[in-house]
Design a protein around this nucleic acid. Sequence first.
RNA 1: GCCGGGGUGGUGGAAUCGGGAGACACGGCGCCCUCAAAAGGCGCUGGGCGAAAGCCCGUGCGGGUUCGAAUCCCGCCCCCGGCACCA
Length: 809
Amino acid sequence: MARPYDPSEIEPTWADRWEAEELYAAGGDDDPRPRFYALDMFPYPSGDLHMGHAEAFALGDAIPRFKTMQGFNVFHPIGWDSFGLPAENAAIRRGIHPKEWTYANIERQARSFKRYGVSFDWRTRLHTSDPEYYRWTQWLFLRLYERGLAYRKLAPANWCPKDQTVLANEQVVGGACERCGTPVVRKDLTQWFFKITDYAQALLDDMSELPGWSDRVLTMQRNWIGRSDGAEVDFEIAETGQNVTVFTTRPDTLWGVTFFVFAPEHPMVEELGRMGGSWDQVRTMRDSLQATPLTAREQAESREGILLGVHAVNPVNGEKVPCFVAPYVLMEYGTGAVMGVPGHDQRDFEFARANGLPVRVVIEPEGETRDPDAMDRAWDHEGVMVNSGLFDGTPSPAGIGDVIRWLESEGKGRAAVSYRLRDWLISRQRYWGCPIPIIHCPSCGEVPVPDDQLPVELPEDVDVSPTGESPLARDEGFVNVTCPECGGDAKRDTDTMDTFVDSSWYYYRYLSPRDDRQPFDSEAVRRWMPVGQYTGGIEHAILHLLYSRFITKVLNDMGMIPFREPFPKLLNQGQVILGGAAMSKSRGNIVEPMPIVEKYGADTVRLTMLFANKPEDDIDWADVSPHGVHDWLGRVWRVVHEAGERQGEDPVELRRLTHRTISRVTDMYERFRFNVIVAQLMSLSNEIRAVLDDGEPARESVTALVLMLAPLAPFIAEELWREALGQEGSVHRARWPAFDPELARQTTVTLVVQVDGKVRDRIEVPTEVSESEAERLARSSTGALRAIGDRRVVRVVARPPRLVNLVTG
RNA sequence: GCCGGGGUGGUGGAAUCGGGAGACACGGCGCCCUCAAAAGGCGCUGGGCGAAAGCCCGUGCGGGUUCGAAUCCCGCCCCCGGCACCA
């Protein structure tokens, strides 16, 4: 009788042995196996591992383990995204240094990962907060700077009053700071930006190279980039003859323009307001908007406007319409000025009604007539152009292109594209981040730090309490330098970079993390990349993935890498929630994985996650229980031990089932259907139990069972492989089981007999039963005879060997 | 409003192609083992009718195509994610 299944005994033992043996180290350059780069989104060290990690790394570990068994030379690295605000805030709260807090958490997570048994190649471990890493983040910044892709400008910024820092648009969620939930306000600062907008179209176009991405993530990125097709149209200010351009997606409605609106920040409004006598009012509006948070303004639905006192000339018909200044027009999108078409745009309609402006109908539904005075909202659907000169009668969708071509021929406008995507604001006025390698010299201006002076090291002895300027600005020794160009007194830039810069290139560095001559080894990148499979949370669907795609395109343009997409295949696992809600400290509903690992074992926690549902779906911890899979592992433990002691060949029916299971499970691994794999293995183990109870051997089957289980439950598989089955070497280096197609093939199947489409009988038939034989068997089955009664069969649909449908008259 | 995904038992979920709906589990009920409990094992478990054989209904709702629809088409309803004064 074997000892009972005790994960707390076997798991730590194997974890130590695997580490000592470097079992999961990738093969070297001379390894003949095909290479596979399995990448998990690297963790942020904000404490110990949480439930999300337990799920992510159960999935993210199953893939490289399966690939290794399939004969690939797998590289599965680990590192930490270790700069950033949470570390700094936690450090301030506890009165310790961010570095101390961060690295203590890293060590804690590293220990937990080892206890969880994740198959990392620890040799290439990296931390983005190590100088040997961020030196090359600075190098990357300088390359972008040289290419004009990193620049500084005064910009209205989202400012978190609590964290005392600027936030990217992406970090403002519902008007509040993504990190701490404080409402964001507006502040004008000189900020560093990366010019991701230069790549807006490439980021859209290259989505065709992402076959392994879900529609969900592709849609999120597409929405974020927000391409709109339309036209630029040139209007003229009647009083001055100045040109002013608008962007519109509806050039077919140009004949419906009854007013014209500038954004309050538009550069022309001061001059035009002074001329029209409205400047005092406009300035007041500007000032009040300056004090309003950006997000609050975006959510306002005011239709107030100030009459500027000048007129715009509609280029299609020469009409003069009044110009307004109104906050509903945004300077940041399009050209900062719009044509007002109240008949066909709901916002313009509301503005016209609020300001007593006429509504003109220029698109009508086919065969209908619209009375502008009777309209209670704009008609923004398709229709036929009316009151539009020579375009009358044109269907509006065709009219868009027709009008653009006409505008181009008349020199009054042109086709144009507008994107929602803005440049990436990377400046942070905080301490715990990568210093920006720029020196500001009174005589030379912005001077990049020469490559041979990198890294610009983050000083350690700094007061990190937030005041609104970077803590680095208070460190005289850091700030004061000599200018690398003229040798005069100069000052360092004191901002640090958004941590998304750090994480936009770490997967290149993994291949040569200690290289002190270059950011990454292009040869190694060529050999191993693009990444074979990227795994991580849906919360990174936009930011991290978009930035990584952008940086990859820049590196490609620099000739450093041969591809334009870093992650052709992406798996986004769902969240682990509790009782229908996200786990959070404020709700006090956090379940910690490591105590459950201690109680039931890592294998049980992994299987609980994998068996719950498909990887992309959220797991509600309230719906699942580790008990079930834990008990099953106990049954697996016993059947393998029992079968390991018996001699002889497995009964043929069990062999058939085993080979069929191998065939199915292999396919399911390729498709990440881990929940179905577990179900299949449960069925197989149930059948093995029955065979053993009949006193028959099952060694071949339990061997296959252990191999197929190994990527999902690595500890028990290893123990059973070596101890119960007496195999040489690790199960994790063993070859994936092959199946005999002849055995895997079903020899008999259940023929479903239908009468008029309803199941009336089931018969076991040989797989290769002929159509006529199937029909004969079906017709003579008792169930069919009873159902047919005295009716006549007028038609037979035979799909041997699975189904025969007898259709009666 | 626009874009994307989804809706299957008490619960989590199965069901490559248009061909057995509910695999595998959780939970529940009953039984075996046991002094007892735990652990383990066995059986039943979508709804309705029926003693049973079996019959009827059933994959959000309503239509349609088909010998046959969870799956395809049309029209709705609801849920989730993204974008949104974006012109």
